[in-house]
Structures are given as structure tokens and as C-alpha cells.
Computed example of a mutant assay.
Amino acid sequence: MRNWKKVLGVVSAAAMAATMMMPASVFAAKDETFKIGVIGPMTGDYAQYGTNVYNAAKIAADEINENGGFNGYKVEILDAGDDQGDPEKAVNAYNDLLDKGMQMLCGTVTSGACIAVGAEAAESTFLFTPSATALDCITAGTNEFRMCFTDPAQGTKSAQFISEHKLATKVAVLYDSAADYNSGVHDAFVEEAGNVGLDVVADEAYTTDSNTDYSVQLAKIKKSGAELLFLPNYYSDNALILQQASEAGLDIKFFGVDGMDGILNVENFDKSLAEGVMLLTPFSATATDEKSQNFVKAYGDANNGETPNQFAADAYDVIYAMQLAADDAKITPDMSNEDISAAMSASMVNIELDGLTGKAKWTEDGECDKEPKAFEIKDGAYVEMK
């Protein structure tokens, strides 16, 4: 059966070449489709991340299908696997998607889950995470790539930006010491702070099971004389930190990284508390360039007027990068996951994507090379900082 599929693929490809004037919707073979899985938190505290990734992946796939697909074949985004940010649930979702025919993975979304799934996918299923930032997320196999910055890169770039723009000299940090993402950003930030002339006058931690009361840590930060509080946490924690900081009368600047993105959409959160908050993130829905605005409109049209966050932009770029690699590798849907994975991995170092989140290239170890962007929240919108 497999050999017949290969024959059909060749014949269909030849038919495409002979009918260049036919609409782009005419594909190599009607019944041959690349199947891409998406895994992330579709419910729970971090659902904004997972749903944005899934929705954006579908938009990108629809656009790509209108323009020739992956190497002349249609691409299908399978129903999303909901891991709720939990590693064990992520592995279960991965296996379920394999049973449904998944050949490539856009995910997972969060770091702990990605580390677990990466161990399963190593040298087997092509894995491309839009947003998992821990170093170990893509180290299990040579077939694993990421679109976003690593945790250390975010911490290092944040310290450099704060210093270069003279935002503060005395800084404090408040972070979840039990989470891979938060700790990774924190450690690199503290290390680089000493190299760029920043004085870390308070370094306070909490854990995931105690993330409802920050009064003790905030009191210490207030007493320290810090001018800026660095928050390498996800938006759900940061929203509560900002609220309690306000109640404690803490007059200080706030700076976050990509996990902060989404804070303006937290239910019942007083958005005025985010006024002046700064963060590193690769995308803003308020950007004025044509590419960003077209994406924002497409996302809103497909999702009841919702506004995409940077996780959506990263996922959108992932699918388009997959297309470039698939075209370069000349893969076909009848190939095994292992063969697709090997071919895609080899081609990733050949491509360059001019995407929503910037111009990106990839190294052999799967890391993305692009420049960060910084934004400040003003009047409920992200304004790029220069």
C-alpha cells in the first residue's frame, strides 16, 4: 500500500506541474494530507496560551492550503490535545494524537509539558514548540525546534534592556521558584544583572502551591528600595501580584517577559494596574505593519473578535516555518514519521522566515535566532519601546 501511495504522489506531483494554470486549491492527491497536532493548555489557568496557539495554527494552515499547501499537499490541524500545562497529561495527549495520525507537532506550549513530550518524540516525530522556553525542551532529539527565545535568553536580554535604557539601578525579583520557566528566566537575569551594573536588592520567591498571597515578599521588596520589580512569571500570577502591590502601596516599575503577555485579558483584572508595565515579547496586536494587522483581523474574524497574543503569533510562524522546511525537504504524506522528522530537521537550517515575530533562522540544535522586542502598556495597549 505504501509503495502505491508513493506512485500516486509522484503521478499527482507531475499532474500539478503540467497544470500550472489551475487554481492553487488543486492538490497532489485528494486523500493525502499532512496531519499536524497541537498540544497545550486549552483549559485551566493558562488556557489563553493554548487556545491562542491552536487558533493561530488553524488560520495559518487555512492560508497555506489556499496557496499550495506543504510541498503541494494539504495540511490538516487535528483537534487540539489539552494538557492543562501538566507533563503527564501532555504525554497522554501526544499519544492520543499519534493514534489519530499526527505526523508533526506544533507544541507543546509550556516548558514542563514540552520536556516530557520531547522525550517521547525524540528522533521520531518532528516537534516544533512555539513557546516552550526552558533549555531542556528541545534537547532530547535532533528533530526538536523552537520559535521563541529560551528562558536564559529572556532573562539576559531583560537585564540588558533595563540597564541600557536606564530604567533602574536597584532591582527586585519575585518569581515562582518551583517552575522551570520562571526559574530559568530568573537565574539568567540575576547573573546578567551583575554584569550590566544592576543591583539586585531583593530576590524573593514563592511556589506554585502558595501563589495567592505575596504580602510577605512585597513588604521585603518595598523595604529594599528597589526601583523596578522584575516578574518572570505567567500572567495569572502577575495579575495578582500587581493587585497586591497596589494594595501595599508599592510605588515601583514593573518589567516582565513573554509570560506576562495576556495580562490585559485576565477576567476581573483591573487593567489600570497594568499601566506602565514593560515586557519583552515578540509580537503586539497593536503593531501598525500590514502583516501584523492582517493577522489580527484574520484571528478576530475567526474567533468572535478576540485579539491574538504573542503565543498566537509564534504558532502562526511555526506553521509557516514548517511549510518552508516541508517544501525544502520535498516530503510527502506517505512517508513515515521518522523519515518526515529527519528530512524536516535537515531542512530547518536551510530556511529563513520573515514572520510576524521577526526574521528568523534556526541552528542545528533547534534554537531560533531573532531579535527581541520590548513593549510598554499604555492606555490598555502595547506600545513598542525603542
Rank of each mutant, 00 (worst) to 15 (best):
D258N: 13
S246C: 06
D339C: 04
A343S: 15
Q323T: 11
T332D: 03
N350K: 14
A315C: 00
F230G: 07
P308N: 08
N294H: 05
F295P: 00
L273W: 10
D327E: 14
A326N: 05
N350R: 13
P333E: 07
A346R: 14
A287L: 10
S284R: 00
A302Q: 09
S345K: 11
G259V: 08
I252T: 13
A302L: 11
S292W: 02
N233F: 05
Q293H: 05
N233V: 00
F230W: 10
I351Q: 04
E275W: 00
F295Q: 02
L279W: 01
A342T: 15
Q293G: 02
P308Q: 06
D334P: 03
A343E: 12
L229C: 10
S292Q: 06
A274Q: 03
Y234A: 01
N233S: 12
Q310W: 01
I263A: 06
V318S: 03
G249Y: 11
I340M: 14
D270I: 07
Y299A: 02
V349T: 15
A325R: 02
E247M: 10
D258P: 13
N238P: 00
T281D: 01
L240I: 10
E247Y: 02
K330P: 03
Y299T: 01
T281E: 02
S336W: 09
N303G: 03
L273Q: 08
D328V: 00
Y235D: 09
N337E: 12
V266N: 05
D317E: 05
M260D: 02
I252D: 12
A285T: 02
M260S: 10
A248P: 09
P308E: 04
E247D: 15
